[in-house]
Amino acid sequence: MPTIAYFLGIAIAMYYRDHNPPHVHVIYQGYEALVVIEDASLLRGKLPPTAMLIVRRWVTLRRAALLANWERARRHEMLERIAGPDDDAD
């Protein structure tokens, strides 16, 4: 499972052969969650409230890049790293 982003102790990963809906895997201090890319909703798992808020904002901000990575994963192509919420280059 490639890690596509890491920020504030939060690891964001994506599987190559994962199920729909398009989502990311979030790992933070022993917590794990799946977050839907389209609406940043919690699909499964749990995160502390502050971490969940940060991830939801990040997913919303980076939706296009995340969906592009999802399509790359479907084609078994290399995934790109995605900037964290503190990177204002976009």
Rank of each mutant, 00 (worst) to 15 (best):
Met1His: 11
Met1Thr: 12
Pro2Met: 01
Pro2Asp: 11
Tyr6Asp: 12
Tyr6Trp: 02
Phe7Thr: 12
Ile10Trp: 05
Ile10Arg: 04
Ala11Lys: 15
Ala11Gln: 13
Ala11Trp: 01
Ile12Lys: 09
Ile12Asn: 10
Ala13Tyr: 01
Ala13Asn: 10
Ala13Pro: 00
Met14Arg: 01
Met14Glu: 00
Tyr15Thr: 07
Tyr16Cys: 01
His19Asn: 10
Pro21Tyr: 00
His23Gln: 08
His23Asn: 02
Val24Ile: 15
Ile27Glu: 14
Gln29Met: 08
Gln29Lys: 15
Tyr31Lys: 09
Glu32Gly: 02
Glu32Asp: 05
Ala33Arg: 00
Leu34Asn: 12
Val35Asn: 10
Val36Asn: 13
Val36Arg: 15
Val36Tyr: 04
Ser41Met: 03
Ser41Ile: 00
Ser41Thr: 14
Leu42Tyr: 05
Leu43Gly: 06
Leu43Met: 10
Arg44Gln: 13
Lys46Thr: 12
Leu47Tyr: 08
Pro48Lys: 10
Pro49Val: 03
Pro49Phe: 00
Thr50Ile: 10
Thr50Gly: 02
Thr50Met: 07
Ala51Tyr: 02
Ile54Gly: 05
Arg56His: 06
Arg56Gln: 15
Arg57Ile: 03
Arg57Ser: 11
Trp58Tyr: 02
Leu61Gly: 15
Leu61Trp: 06
Leu61Ile: 02
Arg62Lys: 15
Arg63Val: 04
Arg63Ala: 05
Ala64His: 11
Leu66Asn: 11
Ala68Met: 07
Ala68Cys: 03
Ala68Leu: 08
Ala68Arg: 14
Asn69Tyr: 06
Arg72Leu: 13
Arg72Phe: 03
Arg72Val: 04
Ala73Gly: 09
Arg74Thr: 07
Arg74Tyr: 01
His76Trp: 07
Met78Lys: 14
Met78Ala: 13
Glu80Pro: 00
Ala83Ser: 14
Ala83Met: 05
Ala83Thr: 09
Pro85Tyr: 06
Asp86Ala: 04
Asp86Glu: 13
Asp87Asn: 14
Asp87Thr: 03
Asp87Lys: 02
Asp88Tyr: 10
Asp88Arg: 09
Asp88Lys: 08
Asp88Ser: 05
Ala89Pro: 00
Asp90Gly: 13
Asp90Met: 06
Asp90Val: 06
